[in-house]
């Protein structure tokens, strides 16, 4: 656990943790608003976003792709809302129509474009490339953390995801009360004069930003899993929104750490020689955590007293 850990595991693990937290935070509210699958939709439309960005700029570089992906997410959200309202179609179906169509367009564009010279393919988009985000310059082990030369060579993904994670945390804190009240009782929030439409849209845009930044580093599987699994598991642990948030962050971190360790070292333990996909394993671990809370979580079942009399 010395220099090798710092060189090869520290940064991917940190990136995994930060990405998981950035997705899990807005995921809490999406789940309570019964919009869990908006995260699914967003992560699918990231692909056409980066392809269009590539077509426009002709280079594979982070900023245009992030912008392209964020733009695609905004377009998707607007399209879903438009189809829902204009066609009077239920939200699930409207989402399904939108994200599959945009995804298909993305795949087609990708096939039509000559991307053989650059690293841009669907698999990368889905699975990410967490294992490759190593800190090669960190030759002195933990001492590299205070070595400016080594620090300068940190993978740029780490800085980006840290920034986005900080932004998501800040937005959650600042808009905490608005989010809470408009999620619980939108009619009351309207009557208070709160901009409930803007709050809902802002939440989805925040989720999109988190998804895009996380996607850049870890691929879209982690994104969907982290939007849903840690908050869902957290909901089964407590009846307080504040505590639910803390639980979801804890589960997100746990999934990222355990998933990364299992992917990298698990196969070695059972005698295999090659590591498996870290992104996939992180998603799997988050699912196992959710499964455990579904079976044993103290608040796993509905109480239903009020619900029955209310209907």
């Amino acid at each position: 656990m010395g220099s090798e850990f710092v060189q090869f595991s520290l940064t991917p693990m940190l990136i995994g943790i930060l990405a998981s937290i950035a997705c899990a935070l807005p995921g809490n509210f999406l789940i309570l608003r019964k919009q869990a699958l908006i995260g699914d939709a967003i992560s699918h439309v990231v692909l056409p976003g980066i392809v269009v960005a590539f077509l426009l700029t002709g280079v594979v570089s982070a900023l245009p792709m992030l912008l392209g992906a964020a733009g695609a997410a905004v377009v998707a959200v607007i399209l879903i809302e438009a189809i829902k309202r204009l066609g009077k179609i239920e939200p699930g179906a409207a989402m399904g129509v939108t994200f599959t169509t945009l995804f298909a367009a993305g795949v087609l564009l990708l096939e039509q474009t000559d991307t053989s010279s650059v690293h841009l393919d669907v698999e990368h988009a889905l699975m990410g490339n967490l294992e490759s985000l190593i800190w090669f310059q960190a030759r002195d082990g933990w001492a590299s953390l205070i070595d400016p030369v080594a620090l300068a060579a940190l993978p740029p993904e780490l800085g980006r995801i840290a920034l986005v994670c900080a932004l998501v945390v800040a937005l959650t804190l600042v808009f905490w009360r608005w989010l809470k009240i408009s999620t619980f009782d939108e009619g009351f929030a309207d009557a208070l004069g709160l901009p409930t439409g803007a709050i809902g849209f802002g939440l989805v845009i925040t989720a999109a930003i988190a998804a895009v930044a996380a996607f850049d580093a870890v691929g879209s599987i982690i994104v969907i899993a982290m939007f849903i699994c840690p908050p869902a598991a957290a909901r089964l642990m407590t009846n307080s929104l504040e505590r639910q948030i803390w639980w979801s962050v804890a589960f997100a971190v746990l999934s990222a750490v355990l998933g990364y360790v299992f992917a990298g070292y698990g196969p070695l333990w059972i005698g295999a020689q090659h590591a498996v996909s870290a992104a996939g394993m992180i998603a799997t671990v988050s699912g196992l955590i959710l499964g455990l809370t579904c079976l044993f979580g103290p608040h796993r079942s509905r109480i239903g007293v009020g619900k029955e009399t209310a209907t």
Binding site: K34, A225, S301
Partner: peptide, 23 residues
């Protein structure tokens, strides 16, 4: 069986199974 709604269940199953599939 749990208090989670169907959309959360769908999202959880699809991402976890897909993640495991990638593994």
């Amino acid at each position: 069986r749990t208090r989670l709604s169907e959309d959360a269940a769908i999202g959880a199953v699809l991402s976890v199974f897909f993640g495991f599939g990638i593994v």
